[in-house]
Amino acid sequence: MRCVFVLNGPSLNLLGVRQPEIYGRATLGDIESECRVLGAELGLSIDFRQSNHEGVLVDWIQEARGAAQAVVINPAAYTHTSVALLDALSAFDGPVIEVHLSNVHKRDAFRRHSYVSLRADGVIAGCGAEGYLLALRRVASLLAD
């Protein structure tokens, strides 16, 4: 099985209770369960993680270099600020898909810039929790090519 790291940034541990009108009612646990089910169907092993700390996310991306064939990442607020995440992702050789629950282009102007997008092979925004599943389908397609 091919391994995919699904990495989640700050405050995503509060999904379902934090601004559900923007981020939806699904919890991160709900999303993880759905990813594991679809991953199994697609022949992907899912390593699902969340941290509020930028350095931890950098460490996990570096770990993925030897342990995973792809990275799906919702960098949350670090999307707009983290050159460190961009640098770590740039050192990863496999596919990278960036996911955002909300449509960042309909929100505050600062949310329209993503450092992560400079490395991402695809960006999925505004599809809610389904965005993670779309990302896994895209990863499976890219790994099959």
Rank of each mutant, 00 (worst) to 15 (best):
V96I: 14
G131E: 09
L57C: 11
I73T: 01
R119N: 12
D87C: 00
V71W: 00
A109F: 14
G128K: 11
N74Y: 04
G126F: 03
I124G: 07
D59A: 11
L57H: 08
G66I: 04
I61W: 00
Q69G: 10
I124A: 07
E63Y: 12
H80I: 01
P95N: 11
G122E: 11
S51I: 05
C127R: 12
S114G: 10
V71H: 00
R112Y: 06
R107L: 07
D59I: 06
E130W: 13
G128H: 10
N52W: 03
S90L: 08
Q50G: 14
A129K: 12
S82Y: 00
Q69L: 08
N52V: 06
N52P: 06
E98I: 00
R112P: 09
H113Y: 15
G128Y: 09
I61F: 01
Y132L: 12
P75L: 03
W60C: 10
I73D: 00
L57Q: 09
N103Q: 10
S82C: 02
A84C: 05
L89V: 02
V116D: 01
S114W: 05
R107T: 08
S90G: 14
V72H: 03
I97C: 05
H100T: 09
I73Q: 00
T79S: 02
E63L: 13
Q69R: 13
H105V: 04
F92G: 07
L57D: 08
I97V: 15
A64W: 01
G126Y: 04
V71G: 00
L85N: 04
Q50H: 15
C127W: 10
D87E: 12
D121Q: 14
I97Y: 01
G131I: 10
A88R: 01
W60P: 09
Q50D: 13
Y115E: 05
L85G: 05
Y132V: 13
S90E: 14
R65S: 11
A67F: 11
Y115S: 06
D108T: 10
R112T: 12
V72F: 03
E130T: 14
A88C: 08
A67R: 15
C127S: 11
V56N: 10
E130R: 15
G55D: 03
A67H: 15
A64R: 01
T81N: 02
N74Q: 08
V72G: 04
G66W: 07
R112K: 15
F110S: 12
S90N: 14
V96R: 07
S102T: 10
L89C: 03
D121T: 10
Y132D: 12
K106Y: 10
D93P: 12
D121I: 09
Y132M: 13
N103K: 11
H80T: 07
D87I: 00
G55M: 02
V71T: 00
I97A: 07
H80S: 07
